[in-house]
Design a protein around this nucleic acid. Structure first.
Lengths: 260, 260
DNA sequence: CGAGCTCTTGAAGGGGTTCAAAATTAGTGG
DNA sequence: CCACTAATTTTGAACCCCTTCAAGAGCTCG
Protein backbone atom coordinates (compact mmCIF):
# COMPACT_ATOMS: atom_id res chain seq x y z
CA UNK A 1 0.00 0.00 0.00
CA UNK A 2 1.16 3.47 -0.83
CA UNK A 3 1.87 5.94 1.91
CA UNK A 4 -1.35 7.78 1.26
CA UNK A 5 -2.29 11.02 2.96
CA UNK A 6 1.16 11.89 4.16
CA UNK A 7 1.39 14.65 1.64
CA UNK A 8 -2.30 15.25 1.14
CA UNK A 9 -3.37 15.40 4.73
CA UNK A 10 -5.91 18.13 4.20
CA UNK A 11 -8.41 15.52 5.31
CA UNK A 12 -8.49 15.67 9.06
CA UNK A 13 -8.09 12.25 10.66
CA UNK A 14 -11.38 10.49 11.00
CA UNK A 15 -13.08 12.67 8.43
CA UNK A 16 -13.93 9.72 6.21
CA UNK A 17 -15.94 8.20 9.04
CA UNK A 18 -18.03 11.31 9.66
CA UNK A 19 -21.55 11.12 8.31
CA UNK A 20 -21.79 14.80 7.48
CA UNK A 21 -18.80 16.11 5.53
CA UNK A 22 -17.85 19.03 7.70
CA UNK A 23 -15.39 21.45 6.12
CA UNK A 24 -12.88 22.37 8.82
CA UNK A 25 -10.65 25.37 8.41
CA UNK A 26 -7.37 23.84 7.38
CA UNK A 27 -3.78 24.84 7.43
CA UNK A 28 -3.51 23.11 4.10
CA UNK A 29 -0.87 25.31 2.52
CA UNK A 30 2.01 24.32 4.68
CA UNK A 31 4.78 23.02 2.42
CA UNK A 32 4.43 19.35 1.71
CA UNK A 33 7.12 18.74 -0.75
CA UNK A 34 10.47 19.82 -2.09
CA UNK A 35 11.39 23.28 -3.21
CA UNK A 36 9.89 24.82 -6.33
CA UNK A 37 11.75 27.32 -8.50
CA UNK A 38 10.05 29.34 -11.19
CA UNK A 39 13.48 30.33 -12.47
CA UNK A 40 14.22 26.75 -13.48
CA UNK A 41 10.71 25.43 -14.15
CA UNK A 42 9.88 23.90 -17.53
CA UNK A 43 6.27 25.11 -17.23
CA UNK A 44 7.29 28.74 -16.87
CA UNK A 45 6.64 29.59 -20.50
CA UNK A 46 3.07 28.41 -20.04
CA UNK A 47 2.14 29.86 -16.67
CA UNK A 48 4.26 33.03 -16.42
CA UNK A 49 4.70 36.07 -18.67
CA UNK A 50 7.66 35.77 -21.06
CA UNK A 51 9.28 39.13 -20.34
CA UNK A 52 10.42 38.58 -16.74
CA UNK A 53 13.96 39.64 -15.85
CA UNK A 54 16.29 37.53 -13.72
CA UNK A 55 15.55 39.91 -10.87
CA UNK A 56 11.78 39.44 -11.29
CA UNK A 57 12.24 35.68 -11.32
CA UNK A 58 14.17 35.73 -8.10
CA UNK A 59 11.32 37.69 -6.51
CA UNK A 60 8.95 34.95 -7.64
CA UNK A 61 11.26 32.30 -6.25
CA UNK A 62 10.99 33.92 -2.83
CA UNK A 63 7.23 33.38 -2.66
CA UNK A 64 6.66 30.24 -4.70
CA UNK A 65 8.81 28.05 -2.53
CA UNK A 66 6.73 24.97 -2.05
CA UNK A 67 4.75 22.42 -3.95
CA UNK A 68 2.09 20.02 -2.87
CA UNK A 69 1.33 16.52 -4.08
CA UNK A 70 -2.34 15.56 -4.37
CA UNK A 71 -3.26 11.94 -4.89
CA UNK A 72 -5.91 10.86 -7.38
CA UNK A 73 -9.36 11.50 -5.94
CA UNK A 74 -8.12 13.81 -3.18
CA UNK A 75 -9.12 17.46 -2.99
CA UNK A 76 -6.71 20.36 -3.36
CA UNK A 77 -9.32 22.58 -1.76
CA UNK A 78 -13.04 22.50 -1.10
CA UNK A 79 -15.83 25.02 -1.47
CA UNK A 80 -15.85 27.06 1.73
CA UNK A 81 -12.14 26.63 2.50
CA UNK A 82 -10.61 29.99 3.24
CA UNK A 83 -8.70 31.37 0.29
CA UNK A 84 -5.00 32.02 0.72
CA UNK A 85 -3.23 30.76 -2.37
CA UNK A 86 -3.67 30.00 -6.00
CA UNK A 87 -2.12 26.92 -7.52
CA UNK A 88 -0.22 26.23 -10.72
CA UNK A 89 -0.48 22.64 -11.86
CA UNK A 90 3.02 21.30 -12.31
CA UNK A 91 1.99 17.73 -13.17
CA UNK A 92 -1.30 15.89 -13.39
CA UNK A 93 -4.84 17.17 -13.81
CA UNK A 94 -7.88 18.27 -11.85
CA UNK A 95 -11.60 18.82 -12.10
CA UNK A 96 -13.42 21.70 -10.42
CA UNK A 97 -16.88 20.96 -9.11
CA UNK A 98 -19.58 23.30 -7.83
CA UNK A 99 -22.43 21.93 -5.76
CA UNK A 100 -25.96 23.30 -5.50
CA UNK A 101 -27.66 23.29 -2.13
CA UNK A 102 -29.96 20.49 -3.30
CA UNK A 103 -26.93 18.25 -3.86
CA UNK A 104 -26.76 18.63 -7.62
CA UNK A 105 -23.16 18.70 -8.85
CA UNK A 106 -21.70 20.38 -11.88
CA UNK A 107 -18.17 20.12 -13.22
CA UNK A 108 -17.10 23.65 -14.19
CA UNK A 109 -13.76 22.71 -15.68
CA UNK A 110 -10.90 20.31 -16.25
CA UNK A 111 -7.42 21.71 -15.66
CA UNK A 112 -4.13 20.20 -16.82
CA UNK A 113 -0.42 20.89 -16.28
CA UNK A 114 0.50 24.56 -16.79
CA UNK A 115 -2.97 25.81 -15.89
CA UNK A 116 -3.99 27.51 -12.67
CA UNK A 117 -6.55 26.80 -9.99
CA UNK A 118 -8.17 28.84 -7.28
CA UNK A 119 -8.77 32.31 -8.71
CA UNK A 120 -12.46 31.92 -7.90
CA UNK A 121 -11.55 32.34 -4.24
CA UNK A 122 -10.37 35.96 -4.47
CA UNK A 123 -13.90 37.33 -4.62
CA UNK A 124 -15.31 36.10 -1.32
CA UNK A 125 -12.11 35.13 0.46
CA UNK A 126 -13.13 31.49 0.29
CA UNK A 127 -13.13 28.94 -2.44
CA UNK A 128 -16.27 28.50 -4.45
CA UNK A 129 -15.75 24.96 -5.72
CA UNK A 130 -13.97 21.71 -4.97
CA UNK A 131 -10.74 21.00 -6.87
CA UNK A 132 -10.22 17.25 -7.14
CA UNK A 133 -7.21 15.49 -8.65
CA UNK A 134 -8.01 13.21 -11.59
CA UNK A 135 -4.63 11.51 -11.20
CA UNK A 136 -1.69 11.80 -8.82
CA UNK A 137 -0.69 15.44 -9.29
CA UNK A 138 1.67 18.14 -8.08
CA UNK A 139 0.88 21.84 -7.75
CA UNK A 140 2.96 24.92 -6.99
CA UNK A 141 1.53 26.90 -4.09
CA UNK A 142 1.38 30.66 -4.79
CA UNK A 143 0.34 32.70 -1.74
CA UNK A 144 -1.98 35.33 -3.15
CA UNK A 145 -1.20 38.13 -0.69
CA UNK A 146 2.48 37.92 -1.61
CA UNK A 147 1.65 37.66 -5.29
CA UNK A 148 -0.28 40.92 -4.96
CA UNK A 149 2.82 42.58 -3.54
CA UNK A 150 4.92 41.45 -6.49
CA UNK A 151 2.23 42.62 -8.87
CA UNK A 152 2.50 46.14 -7.47
CA UNK A 153 6.23 46.06 -8.20
CA UNK A 154 6.44 44.16 -11.47
CA UNK A 155 4.18 45.57 -14.15
CA UNK A 156 4.31 42.52 -16.39
CA UNK A 157 3.32 40.25 -13.53
CA UNK A 158 0.42 42.53 -12.68
CA UNK A 159 -0.80 42.43 -16.24
CA UNK A 160 -0.29 38.68 -16.42
CA UNK A 161 -2.61 38.06 -13.49
CA UNK A 162 -5.26 40.31 -15.00
CA UNK A 163 -4.93 38.42 -18.26
CA UNK A 164 -5.19 35.06 -16.54
CA UNK A 165 -8.39 36.08 -14.81
CA UNK A 166 -9.81 37.65 -17.94
CA UNK A 167 -8.93 34.48 -19.85
CA UNK A 168 -10.94 32.46 -17.40
CA UNK A 169 -13.90 34.78 -17.95
CA UNK A 170 -13.59 34.35 -21.72
CA UNK A 171 -13.38 30.57 -21.47
CA UNK A 172 -16.42 30.57 -19.21
CA UNK A 173 -18.42 32.52 -21.78
CA UNK A 174 -17.46 30.01 -24.46
CA UNK A 175 -18.60 27.21 -22.19
CA UNK A 176 -21.89 28.99 -21.49
CA UNK A 177 -22.44 29.27 -25.24
CA UNK A 178 -21.73 25.56 -25.56
CA UNK A 179 -24.16 24.67 -22.78
CA UNK A 180 -26.80 27.09 -24.00
CA UNK A 181 -26.85 26.51 -27.73
CA UNK A 182 -25.14 23.31 -28.84
CA UNK A 183 -26.46 19.78 -29.42
CA UNK A 184 -24.96 16.89 -27.45
CA UNK A 185 -23.00 15.85 -30.54
CA UNK A 186 -21.48 19.31 -30.97
CA UNK A 187 -20.64 19.59 -27.28
CA UNK A 188 -18.66 16.36 -27.23
CA UNK A 189 -16.88 17.27 -30.48
CA UNK A 190 -15.96 20.69 -29.10
CA UNK A 191 -14.76 19.11 -25.86
CA UNK A 192 -12.42 16.69 -27.66
CA UNK A 193 -11.01 19.40 -29.93
CA UNK A 194 -10.44 21.66 -26.95
CA UNK A 195 -8.50 18.99 -25.08
CA UNK A 196 -6.55 18.21 -28.23
CA UNK A 197 -5.53 21.84 -28.64
CA UNK A 198 -4.37 22.11 -25.03
CA UNK A 199 -2.33 18.91 -25.19
CA UNK A 200 -0.72 20.07 -28.41
CA UNK A 201 0.25 23.41 -26.83
CA UNK A 202 2.16 21.40 -24.20
CA UNK A 203 4.06 19.32 -26.70
CA UNK A 204 1.86 16.25 -26.50
CA UNK A 205 0.08 14.63 -29.40
CA UNK A 206 -2.97 16.50 -30.63
CA UNK A 207 -4.31 13.35 -32.24
CA UNK A 208 -4.08 10.73 -29.51
CA UNK A 209 -4.42 11.18 -25.76
CA UNK A 210 -5.66 9.59 -22.62
CA UNK A 211 -8.77 10.90 -20.88
CA UNK A 212 -8.28 11.13 -17.15
CA UNK A 213 -11.97 11.69 -16.44
CA UNK A 214 -14.91 9.28 -16.61
CA UNK A 215 -17.85 9.51 -19.03
CA UNK A 216 -19.94 10.66 -16.11
CA UNK A 217 -17.56 13.56 -15.36
CA UNK A 218 -17.51 14.54 -19.03
CA UNK A 219 -21.30 14.46 -19.07
CA UNK A 220 -21.47 16.54 -15.91
CA UNK A 221 -19.18 19.08 -17.54
CA UNK A 222 -21.11 19.17 -20.82
CA UNK A 223 -24.61 19.17 -19.35
CA UNK A 224 -25.67 15.70 -20.42
CA UNK A 225 -25.92 12.16 -19.06
CA UNK A 226 -23.04 9.71 -19.23
CA UNK A 227 -25.03 7.47 -21.58
CA UNK A 228 -25.33 10.31 -24.05
CA UNK A 229 -21.58 10.94 -23.92
CA UNK A 230 -21.00 7.27 -24.63
CA UNK A 231 -23.46 7.31 -27.53
CA UNK A 232 -21.71 10.31 -29.07
CA UNK A 233 -18.33 8.58 -28.81
CA UNK A 234 -19.84 5.58 -30.57
CA UNK A 235 -21.41 7.80 -33.22
CA UNK A 236 -18.08 9.50 -33.94
CA UNK A 237 -16.48 6.08 -34.18
CA UNK A 238 -19.04 4.92 -36.74
CA UNK A 239 -18.49 8.14 -38.70
CA UNK A 240 -14.70 7.62 -38.67
CA UNK A 241 -14.14 10.94 -36.90
CA UNK A 242 -12.68 9.54 -33.69
CA UNK A 243 -11.34 6.19 -32.59
CA UNK A 244 -12.17 5.70 -28.92
CA UNK A 245 -11.12 2.71 -26.90
CA UNK A 246 -12.16 3.27 -23.34
CA UNK A 247 -10.18 6.26 -22.13
CA UNK A 248 -7.75 6.30 -25.02
CA UNK A 249 -8.93 8.65 -27.75
CA UNK A 250 -7.52 9.17 -31.21
CA UNK A 251 -8.90 12.01 -33.30
CA UNK A 252 -9.01 10.72 -36.86
CA UNK A 253 -10.71 13.61 -38.64
CA UNK A 254 -10.38 16.94 -36.77
CA UNK A 255 -12.00 18.89 -39.61
CA UNK A 256 -14.98 16.59 -39.67
CA UNK A 257 -15.25 16.83 -35.91
CA UNK A 258 -15.25 20.62 -36.06
CA UNK A 259 -18.11 20.57 -38.57
CA UNK A 260 -20.61 18.31 -36.81
CA UNK B 1 -36.74 63.18 -33.54
CA UNK B 2 -33.93 62.82 -31.04
CA UNK B 3 -30.40 63.72 -31.98
CA UNK B 4 -29.40 60.12 -32.38
CA UNK B 5 -25.84 58.97 -33.00
CA UNK B 6 -24.18 62.22 -32.03
CA UNK B 7 -22.91 60.62 -28.87
CA UNK B 8 -22.84 57.03 -30.03
CA UNK B 9 -21.09 57.48 -33.33
CA UNK B 10 -18.93 54.41 -32.97
CA UNK B 11 -20.62 53.25 -36.12
CA UNK B 12 -18.60 54.65 -38.97
CA UNK B 13 -20.71 56.53 -41.50
CA UNK B 14 -22.18 54.21 -44.04
CA UNK B 15 -21.64 51.14 -41.95
CA UNK B 16 -25.32 50.27 -41.95
CA UNK B 17 -25.26 50.08 -45.74
CA UNK B 18 -22.35 47.63 -45.89
CA UNK B 19 -23.36 44.07 -46.68
CA UNK B 20 -20.67 42.47 -44.54
CA UNK B 21 -20.48 43.99 -41.05
CA UNK B 22 -16.83 44.93 -40.96
CA UNK B 23 -15.51 45.85 -37.52
CA UNK B 24 -13.27 48.87 -38.01
CA UNK B 25 -10.81 49.89 -35.34
CA UNK B 26 -12.57 52.74 -33.65
CA UNK B 27 -11.59 55.67 -31.56
CA UNK B 28 -14.73 55.03 -29.57
CA UNK B 29 -13.51 56.16 -26.16
CA UNK B 30 -13.17 59.81 -26.88
CA UNK B 31 -15.28 61.67 -24.32
CA UNK B 32 -18.85 62.03 -25.43
CA UNK B 33 -20.48 63.57 -22.49
CA UNK B 34 -20.03 65.67 -19.41
CA UNK B 35 -17.55 65.10 -16.67
CA UNK B 36 -17.80 62.14 -14.32
CA UNK B 37 -16.60 62.23 -10.73
CA UNK B 38 -16.19 59.13 -8.62
CA UNK B 39 -15.81 61.36 -5.58
CA UNK B 40 -19.40 62.53 -5.89
CA UNK B 41 -21.01 59.54 -7.58
CA UNK B 42 -24.02 57.86 -5.99
CA UNK B 43 -22.95 54.51 -7.46
CA UNK B 44 -19.56 54.59 -5.77
CA UNK B 45 -20.58 52.32 -2.90
CA UNK B 46 -21.57 49.70 -5.47
CA UNK B 47 -18.71 49.85 -7.93
CA UNK B 48 -15.72 50.96 -5.82
CA UNK B 49 -14.11 49.63 -2.63
CA UNK B 50 -15.41 51.36 0.52
CA UNK B 51 -12.05 52.17 2.11
CA UNK B 52 -10.76 54.77 -0.37
CA UNK B 53 -9.24 57.95 1.07
CA UNK B 54 -9.96 61.40 -0.33
CA UNK B 55 -6.55 61.28 -1.94
CA UNK B 56 -7.30 57.94 -3.60
CA UNK B 57 -10.59 59.31 -4.88
CA UNK B 58 -8.91 62.31 -6.44
CA UNK B 59 -6.55 59.92 -8.24
CA UNK B 60 -9.59 58.12 -9.60
CA UNK B 61 -11.14 61.42 -10.67
CA UNK B 62 -8.08 62.11 -12.80
CA UNK B 63 -8.63 59.02 -14.94
CA UNK B 64 -12.38 58.54 -14.92
CA UNK B 65 -13.16 61.87 -16.47
CA UNK B 66 -15.70 61.06 -19.09
CA UNK B 67 -18.93 59.24 -19.62
CA UNK B 68 -20.63 57.99 -22.71
CA UNK B 69 -24.31 57.76 -23.57
CA UNK B 70 -25.44 54.69 -25.48
CA UNK B 71 -28.90 54.63 -26.98
CA UNK B 72 -31.17 51.60 -26.77
CA UNK B 73 -30.05 48.98 -29.28
CA UNK B 74 -26.63 50.56 -29.88
CA UNK B 75 -23.41 48.78 -29.03
CA UNK B 76 -20.95 49.97 -26.39
CA UNK B 77 -18.33 47.73 -27.98
CA UNK B 78 -18.26 44.77 -30.31
CA UNK B 79 -16.35 41.51 -30.34
CA UNK B 80 -13.04 42.22 -32.02
CA UNK B 81 -12.88 45.90 -31.00
CA UNK B 82 -9.51 46.65 -29.48
CA UNK B 83 -9.65 46.78 -25.71
CA UNK B 84 -8.70 50.04 -24.01
CA UNK B 85 -11.22 50.66 -21.26
CA UNK B 86 -13.65 49.02 -18.95
CA UNK B 87 -17.02 50.59 -18.28
CA UNK B 88 -19.09 51.15 -15.16
CA UNK B 89 -22.79 51.42 -15.86
CA UNK B 90 -24.05 54.67 -14.39
CA UNK B 91 -27.61 54.38 -15.67
CA UNK B 92 -29.48 51.89 -17.80
CA UNK B 93 -28.72 48.28 -18.67
CA UNK B 94 -26.92 46.11 -21.22
CA UNK B 95 -26.73 42.61 -22.56
CA UNK B 96 -23.48 40.91 -23.57
CA UNK B 97 -23.66 38.60 -26.56
CA UNK B 98 -21.11 36.12 -27.90
CA UNK B 99 -21.46 34.82 -31.42
CA UNK B 100 -20.29 31.48 -32.76
CA UNK B 101 -18.74 31.34 -36.21
CA UNK B 102 -21.86 29.62 -37.53
CA UNK B 103 -23.95 32.64 -36.55
CA UNK B 104 -25.42 31.17 -33.39
CA UNK B 105 -25.79 33.81 -30.67
CA UNK B 106 -25.72 33.41 -26.94
CA UNK B 107 -26.44 36.05 -24.31
CA UNK B 108 -23.77 35.66 -21.62
CA UNK B 109 -25.15 38.23 -19.24
CA UNK B 110 -27.43 41.15 -18.39
CA UNK B 111 -25.75 44.06 -16.61
CA UNK B 112 -27.47 46.88 -14.75
CA UNK B 113 -26.46 50.16 -13.13
CA UNK B 114 -23.48 49.81 -10.78
CA UNK B 115 -22.09 46.79 -12.63
CA UNK B 116 -19.08 46.73 -14.93
CA UNK B 117 -18.52 45.75 -18.53
CA UNK B 118 -15.48 44.88 -20.59
CA UNK B 119 -13.18 42.85 -18.35
CA UNK B 120 -13.29 40.05 -20.90
CA UNK B 121 -11.11 42.21 -23.15
CA UNK B 122 -8.00 42.19 -20.95
CA UNK B 123 -7.03 38.67 -21.96
CA UNK B 124 -6.57 39.08 -25.71
CA UNK B 125 -6.44 42.87 -25.94
CA UNK B 126 -9.72 42.87 -27.79
CA UNK B 127 -13.28 42.44 -26.70
CA UNK B 128 -14.77 39.01 -26.81
CA UNK B 129 -18.45 39.88 -27.01
CA UNK B 130 -20.87 42.60 -28.07
CA UNK B 131 -22.26 44.86 -25.33
CA UNK B 132 -25.66 46.21 -26.40
CA UNK B 133 -27.79 48.71 -24.50
CA UNK B 134 -31.23 47.43 -23.53
CA UNK B 135 -32.39 51.01 -22.92
CA UNK B 136 -30.86 54.47 -23.24
CA UNK B 137 -27.88 54.19 -20.92
CA UNK B 138 -24.82 56.03 -19.61
CA UNK B 139 -21.46 54.48 -18.74
CA UNK B 140 -18.31 55.80 -17.09
CA UNK B 141 -15.22 55.16 -19.21
CA UNK B 142 -12.29 53.76 -17.22
CA UNK B 143 -9.06 53.53 -19.25
CA UNK B 144 -7.55 50.24 -18.21
CA UNK B 145 -3.88 51.16 -18.61
CA UNK B 146 -4.36 54.08 -16.21
CA UNK B 147 -6.40 51.94 -13.85
CA UNK B 148 -3.47 49.51 -13.71
CA UNK B 149 -1.19 52.37 -12.65
CA UNK B 150 -3.52 53.32 -9.81
CA UNK B 151 -3.75 49.67 -8.77
CA UNK B 152 0.01 49.57 -8.31
CA UNK B 153 -0.24 52.55 -5.98
CA UNK B 154 -3.48 51.91 -4.10
CA UNK B 155 -3.64 48.48 -2.54
CA UNK B 156 -7.37 48.51 -1.97
CA UNK B 157 -8.02 49.40 -5.60
CA UNK B 158 -5.75 46.59 -6.71
CA UNK B 159 -7.59 44.11 -4.57
CA UNK B 160 -10.94 45.49 -5.70
CA UNK B 161 -10.17 44.79 -9.36
CA UNK B 162 -9.04 41.26 -8.53
CA UNK B 163 -12.24 40.75 -6.61
CA UNK B 164 -14.37 42.10 -9.42
CA UNK B 165 -12.80 39.73 -11.91
CA UNK B 166 -12.99 36.80 -9.50
CA UNK B 167 -16.63 37.65 -8.87
CA UNK B 168 -17.33 37.41 -12.57
CA UNK B 169 -15.68 33.98 -12.62
CA UNK B 170 -17.85 32.84 -9.73
CA UNK B 171 -21.03 34.15 -11.35
CA UNK B 172 -20.10 32.39 -14.56
CA UNK B 173 -19.70 29.09 -12.75
CA UNK B 174 -23.15 29.53 -11.20
CA UNK B 175 -24.56 30.19 -14.65
CA UNK B 176 -22.81 27.10 -16.05
CA UNK B 177 -24.39 25.06 -13.30
CA UNK B 178 -27.78 26.53 -14.21
CA UNK B 179 -27.31 25.75 -17.90
CA UNK B 180 -25.90 22.32 -17.23
CA UNK B 181 -28.21 20.92 -14.58
CA UNK B 182 -31.48 22.83 -14.19
CA UNK B 183 -34.89 22.39 -15.81
CA UNK B 184 -36.41 25.24 -17.79
CA UNK B 185 -38.72 26.00 -14.88
CA UNK B 186 -35.85 26.25 -12.41
CA UNK B 187 -33.79 28.39 -14.76
CA UNK B 188 -36.51 30.99 -15.17
CA UNK B 189 -37.21 31.02 -11.42
CA UNK B 190 -33.50 31.48 -10.67
CA UNK B 191 -33.28 34.24 -13.25
CA UNK B 192 -36.16 36.21 -11.71
CA UNK B 193 -34.84 35.82 -8.18
CA UNK B 194 -31.38 36.92 -9.30
CA UNK B 195 -32.74 40.07 -10.92
CA UNK B 196 -34.85 40.73 -7.85
CA UNK B 197 -31.84 40.51 -5.57
CA UNK B 198 -29.82 42.89 -7.71
CA UNK B 199 -32.60 45.46 -7.91
CA UNK B 200 -33.06 45.27 -4.17
CA UNK B 201 -29.34 45.88 -3.58
CA UNK B 202 -29.73 49.12 -5.54
CA UNK B 203 -32.68 50.35 -3.53
CA UNK B 204 -35.39 49.31 -5.98
CA UNK B 205 -38.28 47.03 -5.23
CA UNK B 206 -37.36 43.38 -4.97
CA UNK B 207 -40.95 42.40 -5.64
CA UNK B 208 -41.91 44.37 -8.72
CA UNK B 209 -39.74 45.45 -11.61
CA UNK B 210 -39.65 46.07 -15.31
CA UNK B 211 -37.80 43.67 -17.61
CA UNK B 212 -35.75 45.53 -20.19
CA UNK B 213 -35.11 42.42 -22.29
CA UNK B 214 -37.42 40.40 -24.53
CA UNK B 215 -38.50 36.81 -23.95
CA UNK B 216 -36.18 35.84 -26.75
CA UNK B 217 -33.19 37.46 -25.03
CA UNK B 218 -34.09 35.76 -21.75
CA UNK B 219 -34.33 32.45 -23.57
CA UNK B 220 -31.00 33.03 -25.27
CA UNK B 221 -29.47 33.71 -21.86
CA UNK B 222 -31.04 30.68 -20.19
CA UNK B 223 -30.49 28.20 -23.00
CA UNK B 224 -34.09 27.74 -24.09
CA UNK B 225 -36.54 28.99 -26.71
CA UNK B 226 -38.64 32.11 -26.20
CA UNK B 227 -41.82 30.01 -26.25
CA UNK B 228 -40.53 28.01 -23.31
CA UNK B 229 -39.78 31.19 -21.35
CA UNK B 230 -43.31 32.38 -22.01
CA UNK B 231 -44.77 29.05 -20.92
CA UNK B 232 -42.82 29.18 -17.65
CA UNK B 233 -44.07 32.71 -16.94
CA UNK B 234 -47.62 31.46 -17.51
CA UNK B 235 -47.01 28.44 -15.31
CA UNK B 236 -45.74 30.64 -12.45
CA UNK B 237 -48.77 32.85 -12.91
CA UNK B 238 -51.14 29.87 -12.60
CA UNK B 239 -49.23 28.72 -9.50
CA UNK B 240 -49.52 32.21 -7.94
CA UNK B 241 -45.74 32.53 -7.70
CA UNK B 242 -45.36 35.47 -10.07
CA UNK B 243 -47.69 37.97 -11.63
CA UNK B 244 -46.38 38.85 -15.09
CA UNK B 245 -47.99 41.39 -17.35
CA UNK B 246 -45.81 41.74 -20.41
CA UNK B 247 -42.54 43.16 -19.20
CA UNK B 248 -43.77 44.12 -15.77
CA UNK B 249 -43.10 41.37 -13.25
CA UNK B 250 -44.25 41.08 -9.66
CA UNK B 251 -42.83 38.28 -7.56
CA UNK B 252 -45.70 37.12 -5.35
CA UNK B 253 -44.09 34.14 -3.61
CA UNK B 254 -40.27 34.29 -3.56
CA UNK B 255 -40.01 31.23 -1.32
CA UNK B 256 -42.16 29.19 -3.64
CA UNK B 257 -40.14 30.39 -6.60
CA UNK B 258 -36.90 29.32 -4.93
CA UNK B 259 -38.28 25.84 -4.37
CA UNK B 260 -39.50 24.93 -7.85
C1' DC C 1 -8.23 -13.31 -9.99
C1' DG C 2 -12.42 -11.22 -8.78
C1' DA C 3 -15.30 -7.48 -6.93
C1' DG C 4 -16.65 -3.09 -8.07
C1' DC C 5 -16.59 0.57 -11.16
C1' DT C 6 -17.03 2.05 -15.76
C1' DC C 7 -18.71 1.76 -20.29
C1' DT C 8 -21.87 0.39 -23.96
C1' DT C 9 -26.22 -0.45 -26.02
C1' DG C 10 -31.30 -0.98 -26.34
C1' DA C 11 -36.11 0.49 -25.61
C1' DA C 12 -39.54 3.48 -23.75
C1' DG C 13 -40.86 7.94 -22.04
C1' DG C 14 -40.79 12.98 -21.30
C1' DG C 15 -39.31 17.86 -21.47
C1' DG C 16 -38.38 21.14 -24.64
C1' DT C 17 -38.48 22.41 -29.53
C1' DT C 18 -40.67 23.36 -33.77
C1' DC C 19 -44.27 25.01 -36.45
C1' DA C 20 -48.35 27.71 -36.65
C1' DA C 21 -51.66 31.23 -35.59
C1' DA C 22 -53.91 34.51 -32.82
C1' DA C 23 -53.61 38.18 -29.27
C1' DT C 24 -51.32 41.89 -27.32
C1' DT C 25 -48.04 45.57 -27.11
C1' DA C 26 -44.85 48.98 -28.85
C1' DG C 27 -43.37 52.13 -32.23
C1' DT C 28 -44.27 55.47 -36.11
C1' DG C 29 -46.18 58.84 -38.82
C1' DG C 30 -50.19 61.45 -40.15
C1' DC D 1 -54.40 61.68 -30.42
C1' DC D 2 -55.32 58.01 -33.18
C1' DA D 3 -54.61 54.80 -36.81
C1' DC D 4 -51.56 51.60 -38.67
C1' DT D 5 -47.74 48.53 -38.88
C1' DA D 6 -44.26 45.80 -36.91
C1' DA D 7 -42.60 43.41 -33.12
C1' DT D 8 -43.45 40.75 -29.19
C1' DT D 9 -45.99 37.49 -26.53
C1' DT D 10 -49.06 33.72 -25.73
C1' DT D 11 -51.01 29.28 -26.58
C1' DG D 12 -51.79 24.82 -28.99
C1' DA D 13 -50.34 20.47 -31.17
C1' DA D 14 -46.99 17.36 -33.16
C1' DC D 15 -42.38 15.89 -33.06
C1' DC D 16 -37.68 14.81 -31.59
C1' DC D 17 -33.49 14.74 -28.89
C1' DC D 18 -32.04 13.43 -24.76
C1' DT D 19 -33.09 11.06 -20.48
C1' DT D 20 -34.42 7.18 -17.86
C1' DC D 21 -34.33 2.51 -16.85
C1' DA D 22 -32.25 -1.85 -17.56
C1' DA D 23 -28.89 -5.36 -18.62
C1' DG D 24 -24.65 -7.04 -20.04
C1' DA D 25 -19.75 -6.40 -21.23
C1' DG D 26 -15.28 -4.57 -20.15
C1' DC D 27 -11.84 -2.58 -17.38
C1' DT D 28 -9.09 -1.60 -13.19
C1' DC D 29 -6.99 -2.16 -9.14
C1' DG D 30 -6.33 -4.15 -4.77
Amino acid sequence: MLAANTQTSNHVPGRAAAVIPIRPVQDSDAPRHGTARCSSCSMRSICMPPELSAEDLSKLDTIICSTRAVKRGDTLYRAGDSFKSIYAIRAGSFKTVVMHRDGREHVTGFEIAGETLGLDGVCAGQHNCDAIALEDSVVCIIPFAQLEIICREVKSMQHHIYRMMSGEIVRDSVQMMLLGTMSAEQRVATFLLNLSRRFKARGFSAAEFHLRMTREEIGCYLGMKLETVSRMFSKFQRGHLVHANGKTVRIVDPEGLANV
